[in-house]
Computed example of a mutant assay.
Amino acid sequence: MPRYEYRCRACGDSFELSRPMSESSAPASCPAGHDDTVKLLSTVAMTGSSGASAPVARPAGGGCCGGGCCA
């Protein structure tokens, strides 16, 4: 189940809730009981565990503009 982070506008505390995606937009009360909360935008970092790095693809055409002017 996804976790969503919220911040209370009344007391300034941040908190997380686990809830189904279908309820992601539903109002949430902070642990102190305040109802004036806002859902925060979260960033997700995914890392691999293989230890090998993927090769970096180089753009064709040579150069920053693709026309070879920066060769």
Rank of each mutant, 00 (worst) to 15 (best):
T37L: 06
C8T: 08
A54T: 13
G48Q: 11
Y4T: 12
Y4A: 10
V44M: 03
G61L: 04
C69I: 01
C30H: 09
E5A: 14
T37E: 06
E23Q: 15
R3A: 15
M1N: 07
R3D: 11
R58I: 12
T43V: 08
C65E: 04
Y4E: 09
T43W: 02
S22W: 00
C65W: 01
A32Q: 14
H34R: 09
G61M: 02
M21V: 14
A32K: 11
C30D: 05
G68C: 05
A54D: 13
L17E: 14
S22F: 07
L40E: 13
R7F: 09
A28V: 12
L40G: 03
M46H: 10
A54V: 14
A71S: 15
L40D: 05
R58T: 12
M46S: 08
D13R: 14
F15P: 09
Y4G: 11
D36A: 15
R3W: 03
M1E: 07
C8Y: 08
C65S: 11
G48V: 08
R9I: 04
D36E: 15
G68T: 07
R3S: 14
C64F: 03
L41I: 11
V56K: 13
P27H: 06
H34Q: 11
Y4P: 07
K39S: 10
G61R: 08
C65L: 09
E23N: 11
C8A: 11
V44W: 01
A60F: 03
D13G: 06
G66A: 05
R58G: 00
A32I: 00
G12I: 10
R58W: 03
P27V: 11
S25A: 15
L17F: 05
F15A: 06
L40F: 01
T37G: 03
L41Q: 12
Y4I: 11
G66D: 06
S14G: 09
H34V: 13
